[in-house]
Design a protein around this nucleic acid. Structure first.
Lengths: 183, 183
DNA sequence: ACCATATGAGACATCATTGTCTCATCCCAG
DNA sequence: CTGGGATGAGACAATGATGTCTCATATGGT
């Protein structure tokens, strides 16, 4: 009888990824429940967004764990990270832009931890000599988010094939557009 | 006596870049005029956004012209393009996310022209052998927008120094994070 | 079969924003 | 100095979304 809260969260994420201004009514319809039930599950729109933020943080942290950022070369770790992050890309894109709205407000500490872990990975790559040192870890982290969001939108609008998502992001982030010498 | 429409547009762009959900009242205050006058200049919020879109398109096309995309190597052209685009980065970031809201609607043909010109530049770089061919021109174009938006936000939140904006974007887009062999 | 509970449908007040209007005031041109 | 147009301040209704409520219905467990 009880509605699957997880399912509601997932479909809300999917809808809000496509149209970030969807109303509670649209979110409810998309989940196949009534607005009343949606309000019983989440006290309001803010609560829903915060729940989505929690879900996003959970998925990111799961991805960080699964990617074992400390293992192997930093380059390999980045590839694993993007692979693990891919299923959450749409949600991340939504939350990424949503965060731009919070002008001064403190951001969830979960994001700070995630940012720090990813920045640490890039720093490790710099210290090992794999990554260039003229691009700061903070910027590389930001760029990873930005490329994930761009990739998610490009896929959802058919400009990039879903199967190419990971390749496009990882290759651009690591290798850039320039053709490399065959070394 | 007559209010400087251009100035209003600029300050609206600056405000909406930071907080994309600002109300007409906030936009008016930011421009130093009353809401009544703002409504006299722009029939409504839609008209304001469309005017901003027009401004963004103008600035992009001016940047495309100034960057002379056909001259020299494609790499040099990309560098010039980012440099010319930098002053409009905040506005572009706003419009980029704003466009995600228009689900099915036709997008302004101006963007299609701009997209085509940038994609053509990347294609030229591929044909000349400068750029790798496994990243599609459409994706490289999308990634350029995404990195510009990420860069604009990172600067506005103090995570990246304004003077590094161009370098961070161009270097990541062209060269990627990996350290290159000293060739 | 029965009861408890969850759900759906919808009414309702509230709230913020928008768009329109009026009117007083200001400022520049003549 | 004066008249006319532009502006600012604010009132007002309309709109759309939200949050709360009630009640009928459906569903699931006992």
């Amino acid at each position: 009888m009880s509605v699957d809260r997880e399912h509601v969260l997932r479909s809300a994420a999917a809808l809000l990824t496509r149209k970030s201004t969807s109303t509670m009514d649209e979110v409810a319809k998309a989940a196949g429940i009534s607005r009343a039930t949606l309000h019983r599950l989440f006290a309001g729109r803010d609560a829903l967004v915060r729940a989505l933020e929690g879900l996003g943080i959970e998925e990111c942290e799961a991805a960080l764990t699964a990617a074992r950022l400390g293992d192997g070369t930093a380059q390999e770790a980045v590839r694993r990270l993007v692979r693990e992050l891919e299923p959450a890309a749409g949600l991340l894109a939504f939350l990424y832009t949503e965060n731009q709205l919070f002008e001064g407000e403190e951001q969830n500490e979960g994001w700070a931890r995630i940012d720090a872990a990813i920045a640490a990975l890039f720093r490790r790559g710099q210290q090992s000599g794999e990554f260039r040192i003229d691009l700061t870890p903070a910027w590389l982290t930001e760029a990873l988010y930005g490329l994930m969001a761009s990739g998610a939108w490009a896929v959802s609008e058919g400009r990039v094939a879903p199967k190419d998502f990971k390749h496009m992001i990882v290759e651009l982030l690591l290798g850039g557009a320039l053709r490399r010498e065959e070394s």
